[in-house]
Simulated scan of single mutants.
Amino acid sequence: MSLPLIPPMLATPGTLPPAAQDARWAYETKQDGQRVVVYLPGDGSLVLRARSGDIVTAAYPELGPLGRSLGATPAVLDGEVLALDEEGRADFQLLQSRMGLVHAAGRAARRATEVPVHLVLFDVMHLGQRSLLKLPYIRRRAVLEELGPAGPHWSIPGALVGHGEQALRATREHGLEGLVCKRLDSVYEPGVRSRAWIKIRNMRSADVVVGGWLPGKGRLTGLPGAVLVGQRAAGRLRYVGGVGTGWSDAERTELAALLRAAETDVCPFDPVPPVAGAHWVLPRLVGEVRYSTRTRAGMLRQPSWLRLRPDLTPEESAADLPDDLA
């Protein structure tokens, strides 16, 4: 049968619901993967579409058997493709080695044996001949659990009703990306970034040493568009990423003056990062940044600037790089 194309419903960044409304919400772990809508026509096949609408089925051949899991019952499911690290946590860097293989079926099959993916299914929008979009979340969740599509490469993650503070704390304690809060009575809104779903990203902070900058463009011409930062480990300054957000106009102007005063021709990072157009500075400015997670190489993901730390010297700035990256 022909299944309806349904763009995924999106969550709005926010904070936990008020304590008085806690029991009206369900809490799911926020996953760090590739969002997909799963189309199961009921003939044993499946089609995976990314948020963009692009078909990405060929990149994940190990998910093919999911097409037979519901028998002849057509369905449209919502989920996320993950690549898991050795501790069972989603690792987006690992997944990136799979995402680009949509048009390379042979390579995708080989890579599947090296970096297998896992699909978490957290919603059902269509089943049989019936649209479920207008059903409340709690009923759609019950339908999904009754379907029970479990297999070696896919599963239904847990959802906790109420106890939002405890759920968020658990994600932080286990180093997970965050939490998604879903109102129990919420309908499925295709393609809408809805307040009925709230995402909370666990952010960490770190002290970093500024070692360079990249010129801004457009209205930022003449100002730093991003600063290049590192952390000291094993007696050297290791590059951990570029930070391009978090300043007011006044703060960016102040930072520009500090960077110009510290300019040097010598890169302070060891090893030298492959950053085109970089301007190097003496590594004497310390700042605090916020970030979500680190890559396996120790790079900061989604960093944003918090503040300068004039109270710290570069030698005093804390480094929390893994020992094997020092």
Rank of each mutant, 00 (worst) to 15 (best):
T313S: 15
D185P: 01
G71R: 05
G106N: 02
Y60P: 03
V143P: 06
A19C: 05
R296A: 15
K199N: 11
K134D: 14
A23E: 13
E288K: 06
G287A: 15
A109Y: 02
L282R: 14
G42D: 13
I138F: 12
G225R: 01
P149L: 04
S155D: 08
R232Q: 10
L237D: 00
S292E: 14
L179Y: 05
G212Q: 06
S52F: 04
V289N: 01
G42T: 09
G14S: 00
R89D: 08
R201T: 13
L48M: 05
L306F: 03
H174C: 05
L285G: 00
E316D: 13
G128H: 12
K134T: 09
G218H: 10
T73H: 09
A83C: 13
T264Y: 06
A256H: 11
P303T: 05
R89V: 08
A105P: 15
V161R: 12
A276K: 15
G162R: 00
S52K: 06
L66G: 01
W305A: 13
Y137M: 13
D207V: 01
S2V: 14
M125P: 04
S155L: 10
R24D: 15
G230K: 03
Q302R: 10
L121Y: 02
S186I: 10
M99F: 03
G218P: 02
W280Q: 01
R140A: 05
V192P: 03
G225W: 02
R252L: 13
A326H: 09
E189I: 04
P18S: 08
L121M: 14
I55H: 04
H103C: 07
R238W: 02
S317R: 01
R301Y: 08
T293G: 04
G298F: 10
D270Y: 08
T253E: 14
G151A: 09
K217P: 01
L101M: 09
A206F: 06
E288R: 10
H174M: 10
G128Q: 14
V208E: 10
L70S: 12
E114W: 07
A150S: 12
A142Y: 04
Y27N: 04
L94M: 14
A19R: 12
L16V: 02
G162V: 00
L223E: 07
G277M: 02
M1D: 09
G106T: 01
E173R: 14
L179I: 05
Q21T: 02
V117A: 10
D311Y: 08
W213Y: 14
V76R: 14
G164V: 00
